[in-house]
């Protein structure tokens, strides 16, 4: 489903060039739950961003569902992100000016879908995370755990094949973190492929496979 071949990524800061990823080769199969672990600054999030087409590698190849992404245009990449991926971020990244229901609807805005259908799907997604009562609220009226559940609903509303989660419990207490993890596991059991960046060994143990990154390289 996901195949990375010889992926490298450099960051240029002032006059210093930092190698964030170095010759990464990784495959993720459909339905897998893969955790990416490693110390801070080792390149975990960069790797996740490259998988999710949020960032471009300096070199190497990315294959999604057997399609090699070479010279895809901006609109082609946007369409692929919309239809293939769902994202969950550590700091939720909800749009505070929009109500919960509008936030959840967001990925569907970029599909040709009638407004009523969009609204019904967003409601269904909120129902799955137990937040239908909060759909008219604004994000800053919710707790951190509730916000992350809204983010999960938003990530899932478009029924993506792959869910990418960057430290989804990093800003939550243990109880809320456990709730979020149980929802991710339920999604995985329903067939969604999940790639999750985490520092938490206990959470990583729930996944099928743990990939460790150190100094931009995969280590066994």
């Amino acid at each position: 489903m996901i195949k990375l071949s010889a992926i490298s990524k450099n960051y240029q800061t002032d006059k210093v060039q930092t190698r964030a990823l170095d010759n990464i080769n990784l495959q993720v199969q459909a339905g897998e739950f893969v955790s990416i672990m490693g110390p801070s600054g080792c390149g975990k999030s960069t790797l996740l961003n490259i998988i999710g087409l949020l960032d471009r590698p300096a070199s190497g190849q990315i294959e999604i569902n057997g399609q090699l992404l070479g010279k895809y245009s901006d609109s082609q990449v946007a369409k692929l992100r919309n239809q293939t991926f769902g994202f969950i971020f550590q700091s939720f990244h909800l749009i505070n000016e929009l109500r919960v229901i509008d936030n959840v609807e967001l990925p569907l805005l970029y599909r040709k879908m009638p407004a009523a259908e969009r609204r019904a799907k967003a409601k269904a997604a909120l129902e799955k995370v137990g937040l239908t009562a909060r759909m008219e609220h604004f994000p800053n009226q919710l707790s951190g755990g509730q916000q992350q559940r809204v983010a999960i609903a938003r990530a899932m509303v478009g029924e993506p094949q792959i869910l990418l989660a960057d430290e989804p419990t990093g800003n939550l207490d243990s109880q809320m973190g456990a709730e979020v993890m149980s929802q991710l596991l339920a999604l995985n059991q329903a067939g969604t492929t999940i790639v999750m960046v985490t520092h938490n060994e206990q959470e990583a143990k729930h996944s099928n496979r743990i990939v460790r990154v150190f100094d931009g390289q995969l280590v066994q």
């Binding site: 999710g52 949020l54 901006d74 609109s75 946007a78 369409k79 992100r81 919309n82 239809q83 991926f85 994202f87 990244h93 909800l94 749009i95 967001l106 990925p107 805005l109 970029y110 599909r111 938003r154 478009g158």
Partner: peptide, 16 residues
Amino acid sequence: STEIGVRKAFGASRQQ
């Protein structure tokens, strides 16, 4: 910019 990032992540193209 964060809103832009979120919109792009969820499929907004440059034209949109």
